[in-house]
């Protein structure tokens, strides 16, 4: 038997690593992957709480989070392609103008 606090601790560590990646990385694709890491960390705590409370609602919520993450990935990567097409760079420090 694994205590609930271990799962929540792992989830917190993964979430903080995602935030750290969001802050220190400069490539727009890696920043986007850090966001996916944060979403995965939250999913783990949903499933852990669902198992702890003996309910399936947590797993249903994870399903919805995954749907939103898939939609976000599709739109976000399309935006990355559009940004690369106009700026020819993936570095977020070089993308500092709203209009070219």
């Amino acid at each position: 038997m694994v205590p609930l606090s271990y799962y929540l601790g792992l989830s917190a560590v993964l979430f903080c690593l995602g935030v750290l990646g969001f802050l220190i990385r400069r490539s727009i694709i890696t920043i986007f992957m850090s966001i996916e890491l944060m979403l995965n960390a939250v999913n783990l705590s949903f499933v852990a709480f669902g198992a702890y409370l003996h309910t399936l609602n947590g797993q249903v919520f994870v399903f919805f989070v995954m749907v939103v993450a898939a939609a976000e990935a599709a739109v976000g990567l399309a935006i990355i392609i559009a940004v690369f097409r106009t700026r020819e760079t993936l570095n977020v420090d070089r993308v500092n103008l709203l209009k070219l």
Binding site: M1, V2, P3, L4, S5, Y6, Y7, L8, G9, A12, V13, C16, A48, A51, Y52
Partner: peptide, 16 residues
């Protein structure tokens, strides 16, 4: 977060 989770471990119990 990790410290407070480990501190109150007895109150949350097993998740398996």
């Amino acid at each position: 977060v990790v410290y407070s989770l480990l501190l109150h471990q007895g109150q949350t119990g097993n998740a398996s």
